[in-house]
């Protein structure tokens, strides 16, 4: 299943995504044809149960979808839609047709209506629907909102010029609402987004590693390709290491797919991929020299995303603070069992 997903996604992206399309997306033009092919392929329904019209794939199988989305710097909310649909289905809410995204923020729920602002919503304005959490007292609910029901919408862009909008709702009636099942809590959507970003970062790191090795083999200085110099080989080796570390850690988090608030494999994947994004981008730019800093050369489509994604759904610092806090509260003896088991005894 994993390979099938990877092949399906690769086929669509290879066919549809070009430098021109990425540049248009940078200008705010929505890639309608690309999105239509993605929707028709069923990739956004990968994590939804068959009874609800989905593919019923595991997270482990779906890892390759998010990975390939990152590898191609796909300028669409594929992973957001995929994970939003998962949460809808877990709450027995029907997944709507159209573009659905998710928010890490929490709204206030009163008398069946929701109020508050959702910041940093990926493709928020462009999307038809937003999945968010809403809280009433201590009880968290999952809500499906129509983005056109927002009372205000502010368009914002991350460094990759991907929309990260702020939408405000005021006593808005959701399209659907359901209490969270017991295995999910108020951090579930944040964790879901972090999980997706860790895979996208891994895919983008793999791509820039390949681009960098290829460039170093072509670029000549001192009468030979720069890859012949040990100094360059050692840098590329370190770039490859970062790519592999991020990949295995993200794959692990998908494999575990543990949204439990005690668990650590999703926080770990986000910390590791975010740090690898920093190191990897720096190495790729260093080896490319000035050409990598130009708009004409494609490295920036990936490095601008890496610098953006590492900060989204929790920076490395945010998640490291969560893990460190749990360890310091629960004592040194809690650390090794947390690493070898399923996380800390108490929630992080």
């Amino acid at each position: 299943m994993r390979n099938l997903f990877a092949q399906t996604a690769e086929k669509i992206f290879e066919h549809q995504i070009s430098t021109a399309l990425r540049e248009e997306a940078d200008e705010g033009i929505w890639p309608e044809k690309l999105w239509r092919e993605i929707s028709e392929s069923g990739l956004t329904m990968a994590l939804v149960r068959e009874a609800a019209g989905g593919v019923n794939a595991s997270f482990g199988e779906s890892f390759s979808i998010a990975l390939v989305a990152g590898k191609f710097a796909a300028p669409v909310p594929l992973v957001e839609n995929m994970i939003a649909n998962y949460f809808l289905d877990q709450c027995s809410i029907e997944c709507p047709a159209g573009v659905t995204t998710l928010s890490k923020e929490v709204l206030i729920l009163a008398q069946g209506n929701v109020s508050g602002s959702l910041a940093d919503v990926p493709f928020g304005v462009k999307s038809d629907y937003i999945v968010s959490l809403a809280q009433h007292g201590h009880a968290s609910h999952l809500v499906l909102l129509k983005s056109s029901d927002a009372v205000s919408a502010k368009k914002r862009l991350n460094m990759a010029r991907e929309p990260r909008d702020t939408l405000t709702f005021d006593e808005t009636s959701p399209v659907a609402i359901a209490p969270l099942p017991s295995h999910l809590d108020g951090t579930a959507l944040l964790r879901g987004g972090a999980l997706m970003r860790s895979a996208q970062i891994s895919g983008a790191l793999e791509e820039i590693t390949n681009m960098t090795a290829q460039y170093a083999g072509e670029r000549e200085q001192f009468g030979r390709p720069i890859v012949k110099f040990q100094a360059i080989q050692q840098l590329i080796a370190q770039l490859a290491e970062q790519s592999v570390l991020a990949h295995t850690s993200a794959d692990r988090a998908f494999h575990d797919a543990d949204f439990n608030p005690n668990s650590i494999s999703i926080p770990v994947a986000k910390i590791i991929s975010s740090e690898s994004a920093s190191l990897g981008s720096a190495l790729a730019h260093s080896i490319h020299g000035a050409i990598g800093f130009t708009h004409e050369y494609s490295l920036h489509f990936f490095t601008r995303r890496l610098w953006s994604w590492r900060a989204e759904f929790g920076t490395a610092t945010y998640w490291a603070d969560q893990l460190g806090n749990a360890a310091c509260r629960q004592g040194a003896d809690s650390i090794w069992p947390a690493i070898t088991g399923h996380g800390f005894a108490e929630q992080i």
Binding site: S249, P267, A316, A320, D321, G324, N325, I339
Partner: peptide
């Protein structure tokens, strides 16, 4: 401390 735990895990 959180970073060290994460890297050990990875």
């Amino acid at each position: 401390i959180g970073r060290i735990i994460a890297k050990t895990h990875a």
